[in-house]
Design a protein around this nucleic acid. Structure first.
Lengths: 141, 141
DNA sequence: TATCTAATTAGTTGTTATTCCTATTACTGC
DNA sequence: GCAGTAATAGGAATAACAACTAATTAGATA
């Protein structure tokens, strides 16, 4: 929470209950929710919350590096409370998303390095692997 | 062109002048255009072309593996006539997109391998590196 | 090459994620 | 606590894209 307050202050922004709630929700879930989903999940506790605020807050969190917007193939963007560079595994059937960390990280860094070799100043990367998760495979296509 | 004809036939679809034009345009450009851009660029030669046809054709090309839809951060999807697995370099300022091939490919494959180790059946991947291109870096800031 | 039939086109309309607008509310620094 | 200013809520607007439809056209067959 102090991390959030500090990052917001640096940007000249205020810490509001809505922002805190969205930040904590994102931080505590592994589900990479969409804006709409976050809205739905927080609405019970914060009845006055508006979807617009969710969008704005997610954008702010993305800007200050405390969240990451994932532009995936489905229409809705999904959000990740872990903004460090890592890859995502996306199930084409159930649309769930998982992080791939550990051994995949060096490969992600290697791609950045190739980009830099071409004279690019790298800001961030997005690595998505689309496929079918074990659950959906078991469910028999 | 025969490749396109063949792939369309297999799907039970026909080769039309519009489809051919869109296919060739995509194949011959390195610019990863949006549907709207393709429409604008072909409109002069095919005045009767409709934007809807462009969308439909791009979807067909994507399905038969002769093009690739890139869900990028900007609102419009961009299309690539090279549907083989490779990474993209995207300039956050001018929005141009380049392919990264060659040495980055093993790293992309390595990430797929990690996904498979988790029990995923990998279908395709998307690797995007966002940053600032040399031109835009030179242009100051 | 004429015919039959299913696919395609182009135009219109629909859908929906996201953004814009603005009056009201509520943080923050004093 | 008060003033100043940023954030919120909520409704309306936007825009990319998808669905629908009537008319056209291409492809296979003979």
């Amino acid at each position: 929470m102090e991390k959030l307050r500090e990052a917001l202050r640096e940007r000249g922004s205020r810490l509001t209950p809505q922002r805190l709630a969205i930040y904590e929700h994102l931080r505590d879930t592994k589900s990479h929710p969409s804006a709409e989903t976050i809205y739905g999940e927080l609405k019970a506790r914060y009845p006055s919350l508006s979807l617009n605020t969710v969008y704005q807050t997610l954008q702010v969190l993305d800007e200050i590096g405390l969240a990451q917007k994932l532009p995936v193939e489905s229409r809705e963007a999904r959000y990740d409370g872990n903004a460090t560079g890592h890859a995502h595994l996306i199930c084409l059937e159930c649309e769930r998303i998982w992080d791939i960390d550990g051994e995949a990280l060096p490969a992600v860094s290697e791609i950045d390095r190739q980009a830099e070799k071409k004279g690019f100043k790298v800001v961030r990367n997005q690595v998505q692997v689309y496929g079918v998760c074990p659950d959906c495979q078991a469910k028999g296509r």
